[in-house]
């Protein structure tokens, strides 16, 4: 059984400028011990999706629909109290992008890790301190017994992120969410952190959801990838499969826009246009405004995730795979073998 099953998650923000459909029907699963990469441009809704998992969405945002099953338990049914007590920190923990601002500047690194331990476990403050030193050692902070009493601003950027990771590990969670944990770091430091992720996953046997916009990073740490575009998952597959055999036009162009050493700039194929607004997303397939293979139906039908894999799970939300095989023209939906595409309701704003 999967550790985490997200189905048709919708998280909207109700602002004076209209409803922002930041996450609009996202589904994915994370197996025990697995590491899932959630990839997409900024504005795709990755961060909102993972924050929704932990119930961290605040006014004017709200989870309006969908199910989040963690270890068989429906998280959307839990109260704030229950989430806090049973889930946050001890079952699921999260690592934020900018460790510098994610750590409280007026408390020492130790105080912050210890507080998390004391709040979530029945360890005494003394035990919590020992544990915190141990954790800092684990994440590669030199001299942890001394540096535990330093303030975040006394740490370098990479060390701040390591301290954040130590905090995430503090209560032995089974799922760690990493929200762009290396984006703010220099490339060299980034490599060290990615290595650390590999190590801790091995040592602590946690599952992981790794949010990033960088496919290169995904290769380092993730088993499987879900590609998001404008609030939806458009393709999901094991990393190698996705990289070798991308099906969705968006994934294809994402892979084409990654610079690799053996490519010249001419071969790069950046994605044209900009992502439309999530206040008034395009009807039907949301990528169609930037898609090179758009058909007439794309504006009317919202593509569900079609199975396109051979032996492993590979799904994509593109009408060209309506019956599981790629073709030039999409079939009309009455002849579909998998679930029929849904006719999009007219969005009014």
């Amino acid at each position: 059984m999967s550790l985490l099953e997200v189905e048709d998650l919708q998280t909207y923000f109700f602002t004076s400028d209209g409803i922002v459909r930041a996450v609009d029907g996202v589904s994915f699963e994370v197996e025990t011990g697995e590491s899932l990469g959630l990839v997409g441009e900024s504005g795709a809704g990755k961060s909102v999706a993972v924050k929704s998992l932990m119930g961290l969405i605040r006014e004017p945002g709200r989870i309006v629909n969908g199910s989040i099953k963690y270890d068989g338990q429906e998280l959307t049914d839990l109260s704030e109290q229950e989430l806090r007590r049973d889930i946050r920190g001890n079952e699921i923990s999260i690592i934020f992008q900018d460790a510098m601002s994610a750590l409280n500047p007026v408390f020492t690194v130790g105080e912050q890790i210890e507080e998390v331990i004391v709040e979530n476990t029945d360890r005494s403050p003394t035990e919590a301190r020992e544990r915190a030193i141990e954790l800092l050692d684990d994440v590669g902070i030199p001299d942890p017994a001394q540096r535990i009493d330093e303030y975040p601003h006394q740490y370098s950027g990479g060390m701040q992120q390591r301290a954040m990771i130590a905090m995430a590990l503090a209560c032995d969670p089974r799922l760690i969410i990493a929200d762009e944990p290396t984006t703010a770091l220099d490339v060299t430091i980034q490599a060290g952190i990615l290595e650390l992720f590999d190590e801790i996953q091995e040592k602590y046997e946690t599952s992981m959801v790794y949010v990033t916009h960088d496919l290169g990073v995904v290769r380092e740490v993730c088993d499987r990838v879900a590609v998001m575009y404008l609030g939806r998952v458009v393709e999901s597959a094991p990393y190698e499969e996705l990289y070798r055999n991308p099906k969705h036009p968006y994934t294809q162009s994402l892979i084409n826009s990654v610079v690799t050493p053996d490519e010249t700039l001419d071969e790069l194929d950046p994605i044209g246009g900009t992502m439309p607004s999530a206040v008034s997303p395009p009807s039907g397939c949301r990528f169609r405004t930037r898609c090179s293979v758009e058909f007439g139906e794309c504006s009317q039908l919202t593509p569900p995730l079609y199975d396109v894999g051979d032996e492993e799970t590979h799904t994509t939300a593109c009408l060209r795979y309506d019956d599981g095989v790629e073709r030039e023209e999409p079939a009309l939906h009455e002849s579909t073998t998998s679930e029929p595409a849904v006719v999009e309701e007219q969005t009014d704003d």
């Binding site: 007590r85 946050r88 920190g89 934020f96 900018d98 601002s101 750590l103 500047p105 709040e119």
Partner: peptide, 17 residues
């Protein structure tokens, strides 16, 4: 609204604290 407040909430620190 600070990030570290979100961190505290994400790590199960009670709202009063």
């Amino acid at each position: 609204r600070a990030d570290y407040i979100e961190t505290a909430r994400a790590y199960g620190i009670p709202e009063r604290k």
